[in-house]
Design a protein around this nucleic acid. Structure first.
Lengths: 257, 257
DNA sequence: TAGAAACCCTGACGCTGCGGCAAGGTCAAG
DNA sequence: CTTGACCTTGCCGCAGCGTCAGGGTTTCTA
């Protein structure tokens, strides 16, 4: 047989056969005087085994190992391991399909496909043209993909969003779009925002191990108008202080307990 | 944000971010005077979308397409197509696992993992030290992987194998190992073999479209001792003639019908 | 008997989604 | 001043072949 014939016989391409030669899976057969490879039945049998094994999903390296010590002993182990691997892959695919189903089930928010939890939250947000509100939604999608999305956070955000004051606050922020950082409206707005961010929110986000936040905080502020950024800075400051006090109280309590 | 920060924020590596730049998925952001990239919130949002999409299993090219016409219209199509693709993959994996289960269920023949149908046939073959019988088994594994394995062929082979004459015939072939091609035993043996290969076998292998057979026929004969090959040649000849007659009869019947 | 079709040969690049290394430059802290 | 943790560009490697490129050979056909 020549290479095309043996390849057709076992259902692979000539290129694959040469590849197996190259990898040392299949020994190079004798050559005709013109350089053509000539294959024997033994080669075909070996090639067939290679194909069966690789069709099962073994890598060519694994195939070589199995063929090497043809005790048949190791084969069983490899196949068991392979099955476990396939099981993992299957589960991954099913997980993806579940997520796909979830995504295509509801209406797709303009932010693209997000987790159902976040989708609920986004739908719960009041409809508004507010620019700041739009940025807020963007930030939420970030929180979503970052995967830090604990249940508690979403609960807290839901109660935040559903507050009747929220629309007015967005408007007041929007109004600062062209204001100077020392605008007199900055202080009161910051105070009101801190008031809204109840303990529930602070409780919900306790474990922000910091590193990525440094940079992203700056980026968020840089994305806002100067006066808006100033509000943001003050709110952050106040929250950090609030958090510090809470932590300290907790620590004191533990020490005295 | 710098590259490490944005990467940590959305849960990818810096290397991946640079890769997305390279592919044009994510625009190159501004640089600091030292050459460092600085990212805005908008970049992070985009990166997050990229990650969500690619996590779903879209290729990066598909991600780019989806992001390109952000109508959200095309996204639904792509996701549907993706789900179909995943369904296919899942089915493939399950099929492989089914085959694996079948294989590890029975005892593994020394020929390696073969189809259950062939395994049954191999077990049905009489136990013998016959060299020719061993080659026969090898050829069967070839037939197996070639996938030409119609039910009918296996049925026919089963009845062949179970014939009580089969062991004697193998022995007579083995005896020709060192004989000359013109050995007087060649003719009778060929006749007897043709007798055994009943119409059932001929019926079962009607559609051998030829091309691969030319080469493999020679290879099979080359694998045998001279006298054995001579037997093989005669048997083949007789079978071809038999087949020709049958075909002609069939054609005549159709023409007159 | 020539020309075309169908094989064969070697060698090398392409694909996917980055990981890893090399060979640096930069920056904050000890 | 030196670590150590970042950042930069650039290139190789991975699996399993597909697909040229740039030949030569054989075989069928006109």
């Amino acid at each position: 047989m020549r290479i095309g014939e043996i390849a057709a016989l076992v259902g692979v391409t000539s290129r694959a056969v040469r590849h197996y030669h190259h990898l040392g899976l299949l020994p190079e057969p004798q050559r005709l005087s013109n350089g053509y490879r000539v294959y024997s039945v033994r080669d075909a049998v070996l090639l067939a085994r290679i194909r069966r094994l690789s069709e099962l999903g073994l890598s060519l390296d694994e195939v070589r190992d199995v063929l090497a010590d043809d005790a048949g002993r190791e084969l069983v182990e490899v196949l068991a391991e392979l099955d476990a691997d396939l099981a993992r892959q299957e589960e991954q695919i099913r997980a993806r399909r579940r997520r796909l189903a979830e995504l295509t089930a509801g209406t797709m928010p303009p932010e693209g496909p997000v987790s159902p939890t976040l989708a609920r939250l986004l739908r719960a947000m009041p409809e508004t043209d507010s620019v700041v509100a739009a940025k807020d939604r963007e930030l939420l999608t970030l929180l979503d993909v970052a995967g830090g999305g604990e249940e508690a956070i979403y609960d807290a955000l839901h109660s935040l969003i559903e507050s009747p004051d929220v629309l007015a606050l967005y408007e007041r922020l929007d109004d600062l779009a062209d204001a100077a950082p020392d605008d007199p409206r900055v202080g009161p707005l910051a105070t009101d925002l801190v008031g809204l961010l109840s303990d529930a929110v602070l409780d919900a986000m306790p474990e922000q191990d910091g590193p990525p936040l440094e940079g992203i905080g700056d980026a968020i502020l840089a994305d806002l108008a100067p006066a808006q950024a100033e509000v943001g800075r003050r709110v952050m400051e106040a929250l950090v202080e609030k958090q510090r006090l809470r932590t300290q109280m907790k620590t004191d309590g533990e020490e005295s307990g």
